[in-house]
Design a protein around this nucleic acid. Structure first.
Lengths: 124, 124, 124, 124
DNA sequence: GTGGTCTAGACCACA
DNA sequence: GTGGTCTAGACCACG
C-alpha cells in the first residue's frame, strides 16, 4: 500500500498519514492482524520525519485502529461496531460540510450520492 | 442569530465563526441580502478580536458566501448552483470520514441516515 | 455617457468614477469643452455620496483632465502632450503588471497585442 | 535579492513586497525551486512586521507564484502559461492607464515602446 | 526552526 | 460609521 502526502496543503502530514491508513483499512487493503511498517521504515519511504509517523501511529492507537506492541511493532486491530458517541461526534464534524452543500444548492439526494460514490470506490 | 465559539477546542476561532455563518445561511436564518454585523460589532458580541472576525469574513467572501460592500459592510450573497469542482473537492474532504465510519462497521445506510438527520435539522 | 461602479470590489468608488471619466475622454465620448454633470447630479445618478464625486472631480482637476469653475461647473480640458515625467511615472505603475505577465509566460508581443486591443476598443 | 519598501507612499507595504517578489521572478533573480526567506527573516531584513510579510506571502501563494511547504517555508513555483481569464483581467486593470495615456496624446507606438522598455529592463 | 493563530491597540481611507 | 493596514508581542502546531 502506497502512502503519499501533500507537503503544500493545509492538512498536517501526520493527519494525512492517519487518514490514508484509515482509508487502507476501510478499503480492505489492510486487514485486522496485518503488520504495519515500522515507524522508521514508513518515515523513510514517505520521506518525512520519524516523529511525524510516530504521531500518526499514536493517534491511530488512541482511536482504536491499531495495536502497538514494543516488540512486534504495530498491527491493524479488529474493530467493534460503535454506535452512540461516535455517530454524534461524526454528525458534529459533518455538519459544516452539509451546510455548505446546502448553501450551494446541492440536494440531499446529490449529497448522499456523493457519499455512496465514496463508499463504493473504497469498497472495491 | 447567535454565534458561540469554543475557545478550548482545536478548531480555530475564525473557522468556527465561518462555519456558524454558513450553517446560518443553510438553515435560512440568514437570507441573501441580509446584512451581517460589522466586524467590530460581532467581535464585541462574541468577545474576540476584530482581526479574527475579519479573517472569517474574508474567507466567507473568497468562498462566495458574502459580499463586502464598501458602503455598508457585509451581506449574504445569492449563490448559484456549482456542480463540478465543488463536488470533487467535497468528496476529497468527506473521504476520511466515510472511511472511518466503514472501519467502525457503519453501513452506508446508517451513514446516509446521519447525513439526512443533519440536513433536516438544518432545514427546519 | 453612463458611469457604473462596483461597490463590492477593492477599487475605491471615487477612483472608479475618475477612471471612467478618463476612459470617456480617451474614447471621445467626452470632448474638450464639454460640460460634466454637476456633483450633485452625478452623485444622484450613480447612487453614491456627493463627497465621493467631489473627490473624483478634485483628482481629475489636479491631474489636468478637467477645469472647475465655481459658477459654470466642470468641463473637459484640452490636454497638451506631456512627455517626460508622465512616462516615467507610467512605467513605474505598469512594471508590476508586465512582471506578472512575464511570470505567466506571456510574450512581449502578446502583452502589446492586449494593449493594442484596449487602444482600439477605446478609439472606436 | 534586495527588497525595499517605501513607507511614505500610498501603496500598502504587503503589496510592495508582493510586487517586488513578482518582479524578482520575472527578472530571473528568483527561479522556480528557489527558497524564499522565512517570514521572520524577511520581516527583520526589511524592518517591518511579521504579519505584513505573512500577508504578502499568502497573496503570492493564492496567486500561484509561490508554494508554501509545511516543512521548509516557501519556494518559487513553476508557473504554467495561463491565457484566458488572466488576459481579460489584465486588460481590465490596464485600461485606465491606456486611457490616460491617450488623453495625454501618447500614441499606441509610444505606449508599446514603454512596455517594451520595461520588458527588456526586467529580462536583462 | 517554520508558519498559523490570537490579542491589543493604533491610524488611515472610504463613504 | 465602515473595513483596511500596520505594529508589537505572545502562544501553539508542526516537523
Amino acid at each position: 500500500m502506497i502512502i503519499e502526502v501533500d507537503f503544500s496543503g493545509d492538512i498536517p502530514i501526520y493527519s494525512q498519514v492517519r487518514d490514508q491508513i484509515v482509508i487502507g483499512i476501510a478499503s480492505g487493503q489492510l486487514r485486522p492482524g496485518d503488520a504495519l511498517p515500522s515507524v522508521r521504515r514508513l518515515a523513510a519511504d514517505i520521506g518525512i520525519n520519524v516523529h511525524t509517523v510516530n504521531k500518526a501511529y499514536a493517534i491511530l492507537r488512541d482511536e482504536g485502529f491499531i495495536i502497538m506492541d514494543r516488540r512486534s511493532g504495530a498491527e491493524i486491530a479488529a474493530m467493534k461496531k460503535e454506535d452512540g458517541p461516535f455517530i454524534e461526534q461524526l454528525k458534529g464534524r459533518l455538519c459544516p460540510y452539509v451546510a455548505e452543500a446546502m448553501c450551494r444548492q446541492m440536494s440531499l439526494e446529490e449529497f448522499q450520492e456523493s457519499v455512496a460514490s465514496i463508499y463504493h470506490s473504497l469498497k472495491m
